[in-house]
Design a protein around this nucleic acid. Structure first.
Lengths: 205, 205
DNA sequence: GAATTAAATTGATATAAATCAAAAAATATA
DNA sequence: TATATTTTTTGATTTATATCAATTTAATTC
């Protein structure tokens, strides 16, 4: 889809979000040299998608990992025709269908925007080349995935033996920034491993 | 504790497991130069512990990450005075109390050997120095934690909406090597997020 | 090898959460 | 604004699993 046209006037909507925010994010882990910065500029595809857009669909290979600059995205799969939301990502967070992305094979997940979303996509190949050329970037990669690993560890404990109420409170505590934004609530319910009705009752009391 | 003495004869029990197995393991991810190999030899503390030994206890900081050469280890925590086993590690697998180890702060986990266990321990500091001096080792670190991240992702899905039977079947499928070794079964039950009685009934039918 | 202890199984009951169904509230559309 | 649609809440019932208790089996220890 090209730029919108009104009579003979083309409206080219410039992407305000160059990659300053992403650079700043990476810079909280490692120093970012100007060369690395330039490399990142060249490999990041910056795009804005409307609500409801699919970044990845089942039976396809997830080609990119995405850094969310603005907006909200979820990753989900179908179990018995019901959507189970695995996770969400908002500002300054990353999302990809990790198995498909890392192994470069198709999988069964959907990645979908829940709001108008501004993001930077990086392909596996570009990322790996960047890792090779910039060891500090590989370091960032290790630190980032470690941070997500810790987050997952806590979620496993939350799912292992906590009640529905405790799991909701865990989300309240750890994902404040998403609490008001994840709608409809069925998405949140499935993420927390409970039905929509149970979530409603938990929230009511 | 020094070598055992019997009269005037000192028995120095040599550690057969130098670190060949660990090197081979790392080599499945990255090429291991002889310099890196020497560095690894110098930073790995190789030890053998009897069954029941604690590698890490609550209220202390987990100082090492451990590569298991032989044996079986679990990590667990207490919830309402009951032991909840978070995970197991056997041959060629790694274990640490990840949050405590990476953040260098105390936590509430126990790491305990379930069999006589031969392992290599590496301190955070030595590991970080090694990452700095050998970018390929940092690469290994990234790849390893990525692999564990994938494993965790699957476990989350297993816990999110699967029945007790499905969770047990998941363990059967993904942890064959531990199925006969994790005893008593209460440890396995808690790992799978169910009671011992439920596990017994699942296995019976 | 008998006695003791620990672990696993089996049974009966309780409970948290799922399911099914309907009503109410919120949102979108004409 | 009224109507239609979607989402959320509430209610009644069912179900999987937890809990409590007892028994059987297996593993230690004397």
């Amino acid at each position: 889809m090209g730029p919108a046209t009104f009579g003979s006037i083309k409206l080219v909507v410039k992407n305000i979000f160059e990659i300053e925010n992403l650079i700043h994010h990476i810079n909280t882990f490692i120093p970012v040299s100007s060369e690395l910065k330039n490399r990142l500029k060249s490999i990041c595809k910056i795009e804005t998608f409307p609500k409801g857009h699919f970044l990845h669909k089942p039976e396809s290979t997830c080609l990119n990992t995405y850094f969310i600059n603005k907006g909200l995205v979820r990753i989900y799969y179908l179990k018995d025709d019901k959507e189970i939301t695995d996770n969400f990502a908002a500002e300054n967070e990353w999302i990809t269908s990790i198995y498909s992305f890392l192994k470069n094979i198709p999988d069964h997940f959907h990645i979908q925007t829940l709001e108008t979303t501004e993001l930077a996509g990086i392909s596996l190949n570009d990322l790996e080349e960047c890792f090779k050329d910039y060891p500090e970037m590989e370091r960032f990669g290790r630190m980032l995935i470690s941070a997500y690993f810790l987050e997952q560890s806590e979620r496993i404990i939350s799912l292992q033996f906590n009640s529905a109420r405790e799991r909701y409170q865990f989300f309240e505590r750890t994902s404040k920034n998403k609490l008001q934004r994840v709608l409809p609530l069925g998405m949140l319910a499935s993420h927390l491993g409970m039905t929509q009705e149970t979530l409603s009752r938990v929230r009511a009391s």
